[in-house]
């Protein structure tokens, strides 16, 4: 089932065209990887889905991005509603300088008026269980989140996001600061989460894309060169440029 569809999506930063005529269909409850060399527009594409690019003043887009059949590029789009539904995990783990507990309830406190302490406690426990941190951290909830290890921080960021109850998780190179063991564990977590969320991951790491994703898109200079089943992209790419990239001829 299609969750996100981009139709003839173009995006300019000032006069620089960062995305060129991107057409893709992202399936629900699957992990979709976007790969490509630096500056190819993969992070830009990711940031279209929750309109984080709007922070840039000289931005211009055209085309359509349908999420659940609603064009989110429409100027009437409620960004608060969109971003609750389409959440983001960033490259560098970035918990707020608050306690572990306060980090997780941040979204809920903002979105729900008069929520009780018990309800918040429940959200914290559930979110931490979902990211497999509960047993480690249940007695340390009031400690500063910045004291955690990098992996724990990134998991906490995922927990903070899950607490807002999104449908779509955008992950912008979520493992690039983690060591191989931590990366493997976060990938395992992604596989567990995909039954409930639509996950899009941008990654530099082709092996990671091959390991975790169901579908893969390869981007080059703002164009989506090839998009399809991950095993097909990696075993039988149709485009010469894709083949050159995944065989390491450039990147």
């Amino acid at each position: 089932m299609a969750k996100i569809i981009t139709k003839n999506l173009n995006l300019w930063y000032g006069t620089f065209q960062a995305l060129k005529n991107v057409n893709s269909t992202i399936e629900a409850n699957r992990i979709t990887a976007i790969i490509g060399p630096s500056g190819c527009g993969k992070s830009t594409l990711l940031r279209v889905f929750n309109r984080m690019n709007d922070l840039i003043e000289v931005l211009r887009t055209d085309g359509e991005v349908l999420i659940d059949d609603t064009n989110i590029l429409d100027s009437h789009t409620d960004l608060v509603v969109l971003r609750k539904k389409v959440g983001m995990v960033f490259q560098r783990p970035n918990p707020f300088p608050l306690s572990i507990y306060e980090n997780i309830v941040f979204g809920e406190k903002i979105h729900a008026d008069g929520i009780t302490r018990d309800e918040l406690d429940e959200i914290v426990e559930k979110s931490l269980r979902d990211v497999l941190l509960w047993d480690e951290l249940k007695d340390r909830l009031n400690e500063p989140a910045l004291r955690l290890s990098l992996e724990q921080k990134q998991r906490l960021c995922i927990a903070r996001l899950i607490a807002v109850k999104p449908d779509v998780l955008l992950m912008d190179e979520p493992c690039s600061t983690l060591d191989p063991q931590a990366t493997a564990r976060v990938e395992e977590l992604m596989r567990e989460l995909k039954s409930r969320y639509t996950i899009i991951i941008v990654t530099h790491n082709m092996q990671q894309a091959a390991r975790v994703s169901d579908n893969t898109g390869f981007m080059l200079l703002g164009e989506l060169i090839e998009f399809g089943k991950t095993h097909e992209i990696f075993t039988a790419p149709r485009d010469k440029r894709t083949e050159d990239y995944i065989t390491g001829r450039y990147g």
């Binding site: 929750n50 984080m52 922070l55 960004l79 608060v80 509603v81 969109l82 971003r83 609750k84 959440g87 983001m88 960033f90 560098r92 970035n94 707020f96 941040f106 979204g107 903002i110 979105h111 960021c157 903070r160 996001l161 807002v164």
Partner: peptide
């Protein structure tokens, strides 16, 4: 800036 980005990405105004 990353604090602002995270907060906005979590749906805060």
């Amino acid at each position: 800036q990353s604090f602002r980005e995270v907060s906005l990405s979590l749906g805060a105004s």
